[in-house]
């Protein structure tokens, strides 16, 4: 409903703007009535973007965002192992995984979070998540 309204107003706007650029004197044969209603320029309507659809995150984007979190490390690559390559201890690893959680606004369950030991594993985990359905339930009990 809202989206339809936005699209409609955008189209009206676009039509209004194109109309302003049209010469004052023109022959009606050039722009028939029907086409003025439909032929809105594509570039002006592309500003309105529907976020409902979309293909989610790409592998490059996920890798980029995770690498960005770890950018202070010198020898960082997409294959870096947290402990072996970056020299992180277990507490650091927990913190890195937490930072990844916060970056992607998800909550990784303990078991799975513990299995993430490298950048590529983290990317794989994020890519395996269905879009927008993060597990938001906080752990109430501790083991």
């Amino acid at each position: 409903m809202f989206r339809t309204a936005v699209l409609r107003s955008a189209r009206t706007l676009a039509q209004a703007s194109t109309r302003a650029y049209q010469p004052a004197v023109r022959r009606p044969a050039v722009t028939p009535f029907i086409t003025t209603r439909i032929s809105t320029p594509a570039f002006s309507i592309s500003a309105v973007r529907g976020y409902a659809s979309g293909s989610g995150l790409g592998q490059e984007e996920v890798t980029g965002r995770i690498m960005d979190l770890l950018k202070n490390f010198d020898k960082l690559s997409a294959q870096s192992h947290f402990t072996n390559d970056l020299g992180l201890d277990s507490l650091d690893t927990v913190e890195v995984v937490m930072a990844i959680e916060e970056e992607f606004s998800i909550e990784i369950p303990d078991k799975e979070a513990d299995a993430i030991h490298s950048v590529s594993q983290a990317v794989d985990y994020i890519m395996a998540q269905p879009d927008g359905t993060s597990t938001l339930a906080a752990p109430k009990t501790m083991c």
């Binding site: 927990v94 752990p139 083991c143």
Partner: peptide, 17 residues
């Protein structure tokens, strides 16, 4: 035990957040 400690640490960090 290590797993439990890591889980606790994570739980605590989440609580601070």
């Amino acid at each position: 035990n290590k797993f439990a400690v890591r889980a606790t640490y994570r739980y605590l960090l989440r609580a601070t957040g």
